[in-house]
């Protein structure tokens, strides 16, 4: 199953596996990116051809790529990534998993808890995380923790409900078999429950990453003076268009790479697809 990962990953690293399938994925992936680049270039040409948008030529792919070495030397990309990714996103996702997985186990296992929690959870889930911002800033010491809170409140639901859905697929007989062979409660959790639902948990984390990543950038437009969102705001205020598009591109690439990591994990722990025969 581990070998499937390369072939299934969206970027399809054909070099890892010289199979025709991997190669096809890779070629199509590159082709897709090329088409996107061409559309981008055509859009830029259009902007430049119009008198009122002539000044926006630096939004184009060529000035953008030219901006990367400069930004890298200035350390702007690195510090933005560090602030956004490590300090906020990773911290937030980690806390969301820490809360969401046990919460999901409770929702999945306890009918009582599921029923009592349904309304409040759905209610809180439907509040846009960004709407918490003013409140979060008041409650938490500093903007950084306020942003982490927004990520947690956005990311905790997919983790919770994916975990609960995974538990629903657990066959009661598996508990019986494990108990029958002398498993303790901890062992049932470690050897049966977690491996059985790892696939769902990572699917939940993947969704969580998606919403967290979307919440992160706008959250950084306020208050903080670091991170990818701040860099975008900074670029706009200094009218440095290639800086701006370079940061937008960075956001996309990093999001894509993070997503690929979760896709790889999901493939690694997935076992449902083979169950049809049994």
């Amino acid at each position: 199953m581990r070998t499937d990962v390369a072939a299934r990953g969206p970027e399809g690293s054909a070099f890892a596996r010289a199979s025709s399938r991997g190669a096809r994925h890779f070629v199509l992936g590159v082709l897709g990116v090329l088409v996107l680049g061409i559309v981008w270039q055509i859009g830029t040409w259009y902007l430049v051809s119009q008198p009122e948008t002539r000044a926006f030529g630096n939004f184009g792919p060529i000035p953008t790529f030219q901006a990367f070495p400069r930004l890298w030397e200035q350390g702007r990309i690195q510090s933005a990534i560090n602030a956004s990714l490590v300090d906020r996103l990773a911290t937030g996702l980690f806390i969301a998993a820490l809360i969401g997985i046990p919460l999901g186990i409770l929702v999945g296992r306890s009918k009582w808890f599921r029923e009592i929690s349904h309304s409040p959870f759905q209610f809180i889930r439907m509040i846009s995380p960004l709407a918490w911002m003013p409140l979060a800033v008041l409650v938490f010491p500093g903007w950084n923790w306020a942003i982490v809170y927004l990520i947690v409140i956005a990311a905790v639901w997919p983790v919770t409900y994916a975990t609960a859905a995974g538990l629903a697929k657990l066959e009661p007989a598996w508990y019986k078999v494990a108990r029958n062979l002398g498993a303790s409660r901890i062992q049932i959790l470690k050897e049966i429950v977690l491996p059985a639902i790892a696939f769902d948990m990572f699917s939940g984390l993947r969704l969580a990453l998606g919403v967290a990543w979307i919440v992160l950038v706008p959250a950084e437009l306020l208050g903080v003076t670091s991170g990818l969102g701040y860099a975008i705001k900074d670029a706009r205020e200094t009218v440095d268009y290639s800086y701006l598009t370079a940061m937008v591109l960075t956001i996309g690439v990093i999001g894509f790479l993070l997503d690929s990591i979760f896709v790889a994990l999901i493939n690694r722990y997935s076992w449902y697809h083979r169950r049809t025969a049994s």
């Binding site: 007989a173 078999v177 062979l181 002398g182 049966i192 491996p195 059985a196 790892a198 722990y269 076992w271």
Partner: peptide, 24 residues
């Protein structure tokens, strides 16, 4: 007890399924 259906753990290989009780 051995049940009517095998109830194997599908995420484990044959050897892991067989050894699961010893692991416990």
């Amino acid at each position: 007890m051995m049940f009517q259906a095998p109830h194997l753990f599908p995420w484990m290989r044959v050897t892991q399924n067989v050894g699961v009780g010893l692991r416990f």
